[in-house]
Amino acid sequence: MAAPESGDGNNGAARMVTLISSDNTRFEVEAAAASLSQTLQLTILDGGGGGGDGIPLPNVDSATLSKVLEYCIKHAPAAANGGAPNATAVDRAELERFDNEFVNIDQSVLYSLIMAAHNLEIEGLQSLVAKKVADMIKGKSPMEIRRTLGFPDPTPEEQAEMNAHMLEYGWAYE
């Protein structure tokens, strides 16, 4: 699990790195887990993030980073096996159960998570949250989507653009 700063993380076999959230919270995590982020991978390979240094993440707050790392820690072992070609069905089912549970969250948390996953380029997480958002709007009318996601009311210009769109594509819609 993510832990508060401990100065150095080299007390065991696994190499540790420190990530610093936008609100200055330090998270110590195994390098293998943090490396699920394409954005961080090179820095970590170059030996960054160890010791007292830490890698600053100015776009990710601590609550979101904690959630992101929960995902990375869970998925790191499978990723280390190269997508786990020899993973058992039980392992895969367990990861799937974890994923389903993981995105069963408040919309605002989901929003922060989708931005962070994108920012950090964590492929599996990007895909997972995109699927969750897609499921939230699937089968819904435009009005229901607006309500579900709390879109602001359109400005007159936006309304005019939508009206023109409906004129252009109206025939396709019923």
Binding site: M115, H118, A130, V133, K138, S141, P142, E158, M162, H165
Partner: peptide, 28 residues
């Protein structure tokens, strides 16, 4: 939402009517 995130989401919607009858008419 940033464009590439939205593209990810739209690609997971499935049949085209999900975009055409729903998502694309939700906002500009």
């Amino acid at each position: 939402l940033p464009r590439d995130i939205l593209v990810d989401v739209f690609l997971k919607l499935g049949p085209c009517r999900e975009i055409m009858r729903g998502a694309e008419r939700a906002c500009t």
